[in-house]
Amino acid sequence: MTLDILYFAWVRERIGEPRERLETSAKTVAGLVEELRAREPRYAAAFADLSALRVALDQELADFDAPLDGVREVAFFPPMTGG
């Protein structure tokens, strides 16, 4: 499965890029995070504390245990600060 992964705010800064395309066999967001963490220290640093992160699947907020079936775009970011 090919996914577009997007990063925002300090997650983007820590990883060093705003988006990337990834081939993965992960079944859930948590599985994808495990894969990313194992890649390089900058990913391990960005995903060190999941309680400080939020995830959106195809532009809808989701949980880390959500399945990735049919998903095209995954975004990781800190809690939002609009207004």
Binding site: F8, A9, W10, A56, L61, A75, F77, P78, P79, M80, T81, G82, G83
Partner: peptide
């Protein structure tokens, strides 16, 4: 609208000050 916009709309604010820069925490 304001309460939801604060925490559920995907915006992030970074303050750039004379002392440095930091992301505003929720």
């Amino acid at each position: 609208l304001m309460d939801y916009l604060k925490s559920r709309a995907p915006f992030w604010k970074k303050e750039v000050t004379r002392a440095g820069e930091n992301w505003v925490a929720a």
